[in-house]
Each structure stands twice: as C-alpha cells, then as structure tokens.
Write a protein that binds this DNA or RNA. Sequence first.
DNA 1: AATGCCTCCCGTCAGGTCCA
DNA 2: TGGACCTGACGGGAGGCATT
Length: 104
Amino acid sequence: MAVTGDDTETAATGDMSAYQLHTPASSLPQGVGMAHLHGPQKPPEVITQKRELRLMKNREAAKACRQRKKSYMSCLEASVARLEEENKKLRARLQCFQNTYSLQ
DNA sequence: AATGCCTCCCGTCAGGTCCA
DNA sequence: TGGACCTGACGGGAGGCATT
C-alpha cells in the first residue's frame, strides 16, 4: 500500500478561501441561498455560518473520499499485478505439460 | 529563461442515497 | 421528507519536464 500521506495544508487552501469561501449571498450559493425564499428570514451571518460549516464538512468529506478511492485503486492494482503473475505461471506450467505429452 | 504540456491535488457544486 | 453524507465532475493552482 503505497499511499502517500501528504495531505498537509497546501497553497490551494488559502487561494480558495479568498476566492469562493466568502462569496456574497447574492451569488446564489447552493441550497442555503435559496432557503430564505421560502422559510422564515434568517440573518445573513447565520446563513454564512451555515454555508461555511457545510463547505468545511464537504471539504473534509472530499478528502476522505479521495483517500478511500486511492486506497481502493492501490488494492486493485496490486490484485492485477498478482493475477498477472499467477497467469504467467499457469501458462508456463501449461506449456510444460504440453511439451511433456506431445513428445510421447 | 520562457513556454507548453502533463500530472497531481484541492475546493466546490450537484445529484444521489440513507436514515431518523 | 429534510438533513447529513458520499462521490463524480469541473475548474484551477502548482510542480516537474521537455522543447525552443
């Protein structure tokens, strides 16, 4: 399992926070932005807090999801390698049998 | 050094699934 | 049925490498 654990903070995190994390409510954030159209009015700071919490959770979920996928792919690749090796051995063995019995 | 291409990683969005 | 969670898709930044 050669999973590189380099999930440290990178430059991207800082960039994105400046770019989209503080998007004004007028830019229609998913779900939360529309919610106040139907329900009781909530102060903007509550909406922003909710949005930021949701983004943070989703950020972590995405990280975990990618890590799981990476591990899964590694396992899959290991299986492929093992099966290819096994196949090679079986073919060699078959060839050996064929040689043995065709000579008689 | 400048440029283009590729790969990796990230954050976000949208849509699906699950569960109380 | 609404909220929480999961994940594919998308766009963008960063680093490495070859070419000019």
